[in-house]
Each structure stands twice: as C-alpha cells, then as structure tokens.
Design a protein around this nucleic acid. Structure first.
Lengths: 142, 142
DNA sequence: CAGGATCCGTTTCGATACTG
DNA sequence: CAGTATCGAAACGGATCCTG
C-alpha cells in the first residue's frame, strides 16, 4: 500500500488524513467508546460498512496511527489500538467534541454526560491527559 | 439546500462537517492565509477545483460557519468571512497544525515559520486568542 | 460466529471547458 | 472574477460470500 498526499506540506497532509470522516469516527470510537475490535466498530451506531472499515483500518495502521494485534490465545479476534501518534490526536477529538457541544446543540444527546463536557471545557489539559493515561492503561491490561 | 446528518449526535454531526477535507482546507486558508475571495482559494497551492469550492462555500454558508458579502462599490468580488461559530474552530486548526508538525515532519516546509509553531505549542491558548482577535480585526477593517 | 474480501449499483469527486 | 456544466474516475455502501 502506498499513500499519496497531495503536497509536501505537513498540515495539508494532515488534512488528507483527518479530513476523512471515517478515520475521525474510528479514532473517536477508540478514544471515547473503548472500541477495539472489528465488531465494536461495526456495532456502533455509526453504520460503517465492513469493506470501508477494513480499508480504513488498514490505512490507519499503515500511517502509524493504530496497531493491529491479537490476544495470545485467541486467533480470531483482532485488537486495534491507537499508537502514541494516534493518541496525540486526542486534543483534536476533544476540540471537536467541545465545538459540537457549543454549536450543534438541539441535536442531542450529547456525547457522554453534560457534566463531562463541562469538565472538558474547564479543565481541558487535564481532561486530555487523563483520557490518554486511561487509554494507555486499558491498552496494557488487555 | 437541506443538510442531512447521519444521526442526531452532535459530535457525529461535527464529523459530517469537519470530516471533509475541503471544508478543513478552506477554514485553514481563511484563518492562516487571509484567504477571503474565490480567487484566493483557487490560487492557493491546495488545487481545489472551482466546482468543489463553489459547493463547499455554499454548504459552509448554510451551516453558519462563513458569510458571503460584497464590498459596497464592487459587484463582482465576493468576500467570504468566518462567522464567530467558524472562528470557534480555531483550536481544531491549531491542534491539526501541531499534530502535523510533530508527526508529519520530513514532508516540510512547515506551515508558516518554525518559531511560530513553537509559539503555538508553548502558548497555545494565547496563540489561539490572538489568531481570533486578528481575524476579527481584519474582517472589520475590510 | 468474528473478520474481512468481493461484487456491483449509486453517489460524489475532480479536471477542464465554458458562461454571466 | 466568480462561478456553472459536463463527464470520466474514484469512493461509498449494502449485500453477500469466504475462511478459520
């Protein structure tokens, strides 16, 4: 698989990656909903098709955003986890959540609880760090 | 024009909007490169096609992210400006820039100068605020 | 049964030509 | 300058099939 970006500028390349709805959805699922298996992603209410999911997971793995692994004794369930590079996207997901909370209300329900959204806003840096820390913890204990 | 989101969840709807490469590109251009006319967007090195640009600008206007206006004496040049809702996307653009700077190096050149990227990181909140303040100022004086 | 590949109709994209 | 029209190429998405 080779990836071609439109130009050499990093931010433009970042838009090639993050300007893809499904990639953002997958990252959000992993970070906020503990999704890690193929089935987790399929069963979410995002309605992603299996072929699309498959393609995007492969792409993300190739980009170094996620890794694919298996439980030692389990040959059939694959586990997808964010790498540290992927985890560094946490601030973007949080900012997205905040923006949507501020400007796309009326659509409800809010992601997670309202109070959590409040915490995100008032203690953003800490919230991001705790999200990353928790994620790393879950990843290790798996 | 009516916009249909995939579900009622705000963050999912946000992904419907921001998970679009061109919308992100346009916002970035407006915020970081002072782009405001159709021509500005076309002439950037992003190589956006005229029909796509036209469609996206209309969509963004409809979403309340940008406004379209004209100089009083000028009937042929349209001016596109971010609304306050659009301006609130500044943190997302900044986080994108930071992530790409950290993880997509080797592609160079960096958006703007390296020192500016450094400032972004160490004084992020202030940087975001100044970006917004400057934008509002330019918008008014136009 | 989980994970994913294949097929295939439909939608969207994108490059260029063209218009007010 | 600021867009539309057109049309081939690519992506989507759903249904189904395959494989361990």
């Amino acid at each position: 698989m080779d990836i071609k970006f439109r130009c050499d500028c990093p931010i433009t390349s970042a838009l090639d990656i993050l300007g893809d709805r499904w990639i953002l959805v997958i990252i959000k699922q992993m970070l906020l909903e503990d999704s890690k298996t193929f089935k987790d992603f399929i069963q979410s209410d995002e309605r992603i098709a299996t072929n699309i999911l498959s393609t995007k997971l492969k792409l993300m793995e190739h980009l170094g955003i996620i890794t694919k692994s298996q439980l030692p004794g389990n040959k059939k369930t694959n586990l997808y986890y964010l790498t540290e590079t992927g985890l560094d996207l946490t601030p973007i997901v949080v900012e997205l959540a905040l923006w949507s909370g501020d400007h796309l209300r009326g659509l409800n329900p809010i992601i997670r609880t309202g109070s959590e959204l409040e915490a995100m806003k008032t203690q953003k840096t800490e919230f991001i760090e705790s999200l990353k820390t928790n994620y790393r913890k879950n990843k290790q204990s798996a």
